[in-house]
Design a protein around this nucleic acid. Structure first.
Length: 485
RNA sequence: GCAGGUGUAGUGUAGUCUGGUCUAGCACGGAAGCCUUCCAAGCUUUCGACCCGGGUCCAAAUCCCGGCACCUGCACCA
């Protein structure tokens, strides 16, 4: 079984995620995060947000819905509501606009009008010459069905970024008219994917964490530190290398200091979340695959099932978005700093939260000698940090364990109590849920008020005093840390 | 979207070809209990499924049609 299939099975069984509305057959590309997954997802988002807030980023939370004007300016409307025709005889697909070239006809506004032109003008497939062609709307943005009379058409956002750009002037003011300005936003984006696949890897509603870094194009406020940690890089010519980011910058492999800085930052964030550095690379887009707004782009890709899957895209958007919004809205997007007036350039690290979550699960999964699965999630993002068990339900052990649970859960709510089944089964359950520590009350507890604490990854067990356990959250607890040093 | 394949308890599967003892079997899992002095032990009880709709037939999990979903490949991927 493939790694991804195995994770999908565990995810459904243990409650990380599953396909939504299964009782009605499900809808492709829509998934629900379960009890473990929703906490895991939130922890990943928090770790991402913290890492940017800590360097002065401002966070915003803009609407999921925006008006047509926004996406006309961003270029999404123009690019993604194209009319497409398909030939039923040879399966060829092409933009309808291409077929109209040279006919002197204008581009129709709907598929219905286009079909009228097809029948009246006898247009034929550009590939095989058949007249069996059908025109459809090819729309990667979801339109919102109902609008009031006279109101602008509304769409679900395909990215969160535009919510930042449209409020740029308010945000630069919040930053007290200084550059660089870093704005972050997390939330859902919507894309009407032709073929959603691989569970949460390709969704129609998905979660992103986008960072927009606004800079003076003539200054270099960000540069990577001199860390010697090698990072896997693949340049636009397909050449692979592993070297420190600072070396990649000085040798010109990465052209821009800010790009290099955010590659380094992203690498640290992802490996900190538990993504295997050996299965992580940064791949530069070829010129022909760059998005319409982008002049350079490095994708962080995680290896899953022998396939590299994009999990973060760090894109140089230049002044594209602000310039477009300035010309479409008629509102200035310039900043005046000192005696210079200019439109800032933008670097955008855009994180696919669902894919990052999938990669952390795939890279954290290991199988024991006995064939049991352990999710070695990083302690910081594990949904639950501690589980508390009585060795047996009898002889008053349950009562002691329940009491410890009630004391501890006031300090750290992310703990679990379990007395069902054998002790081994309970450890195994928590291993699969990724819980880093388990505490067990046994007969010795009655004598000396100690419990055993077991570390998930090493399987080692130590005794610590109950009072020491409940003195603070298990992750930062000095007694726990010193016990396993 | 195209082509091929697949769809049985929460999960993994048997059964489908060759319609009928299938009132759908098994394993894992969940719940309750017994036992057990630390890593999915054992025992008892229990929970739980034929993707949806139509058709053929005396009879459909099984054959046919349509839909939905999943998988693989292609196309798409701002």
């Amino acid at each position: 079984m493939s790694d991804i299939q195995d994770i999908i099975e565990i995810a459904k069984r243990r409650g990380f995620f599953w396909q939504s509305s299964g009782i009605y057959g499900g809808v492709s590309g829509l998934y629900t995060y379960g009890p473990l997954g929703s906490i895991l997802k939130r922890n990943i988002i928090s770790a991402w947000a913290d890492s940017y807030i800590s360097i002065g980023a401002l966070m915003v939370d803009s609407p999921v819905i925006a008006q047509e004007d926004v996406f006309r300016a961003s270029g999404h409307l123009e690019r993604f509501t194209d009319l497409i025709y398909e030939c039923s005889s040879c399966k060829f697909r092409q933009k309808f606009e291409t077929l109209l070239e040279g006919t002197g006809k204008g581009v129709p506004s709907s598929a219905e009008e286009a079909m009228k032109i097809v029948s009246s003008s006898g247009l034929k497939c550009g590939n095989c010459g058949s007249d069996k062609i059908a025109v459809t709307d090819f729309n990667l943005m979801f339109p919102v069905g109902t609008v009031r009379a006279g109101e602008s058409r509304l769409f679900l956002r395909p990215e969160t970024a535009q919510g930042i750009f449209v409020d740029f002037q308010l945000l630069i003011r919040q930053n007290r008219d200084k550059l660089p300005l870093i704005v972050i936003q997390t939330g859902e984006g919507f894309r009407n994917e032709v073929a959603p696949r691989n569970a949460i890897i390709r969704l129609r509603e998905f979660s992103m964490g986008e960072v927009e870094v606004f800079m003076d194009p003539e200054s270099h406020p960000f540069t990577p530190d001199s860390s010697k940690e090698p990072v896997n890089l693949m340049d636009r010519d397909g050449k692979n290398m592993a070297l420190p980011v600072s070396d990649a910058l000085s040798s010109g492999i990465v052209a821009d200091p800010a790009m290099a800085f955010f590659i380094q930052k992203t690498h640290r964030l992802l490996t900190g979340l538990g993504i295997d550095p050996g299965k992580l690379r940064f791949r530069q887009h070829r010129r022909d695959e760059l998005a319409h707004y982008s002049s350079d782009c490095w994708d962080a890709e995680a290896l899953m099932d022998d396939t590299w899957i994009e999990i973060v895209g760090i894109s140089d958007r230049g002044t594209y978005d602000l310039t477009r919004h300035q010309s479409h809205s008629g509102k200035s997007m310039e900043v005046k700093i000192g005696d210079k007036t200019f439109i800032p350039k933008v670097l955008e690290p855009a994180h696919g939260i669902d894919r990052i979550l999938m990669a952390t699960l795939v890279h954290s999964r290991r199988v024991t000698d006995k064939g049991y699965v352990v999710m070695s999630l990083k302690k910081e993002i594990a949904p639950y940090k501690l589980a508390i068990f009585p060795l047996f339900k009898k002889d008053g052990l349950s009562e002691i364990a329940v009491d410890i649970f009630s004391r501890y859960s006031k300090i750290d709510p992310y703990c679990i109590y379990d007395e069902s089944g054998s002790i081994g089964k309970r450890y195994a359950r928590q291993d699969e849920a990724g819980t880093p520590y388990c505490v067990t009350v046994d007969y010795q507890t009655k004598d000396d008020h100690t419990v055993t604490i077991r570390e998930r990854d090493s399987g080692k067990q130590k005794r610590i005093l109950i009072d020491d356990l409940v003195s603070g959250p298990v992750l930062g607890n000095k007694y726990v840390i010193s016990a396993f040093d």
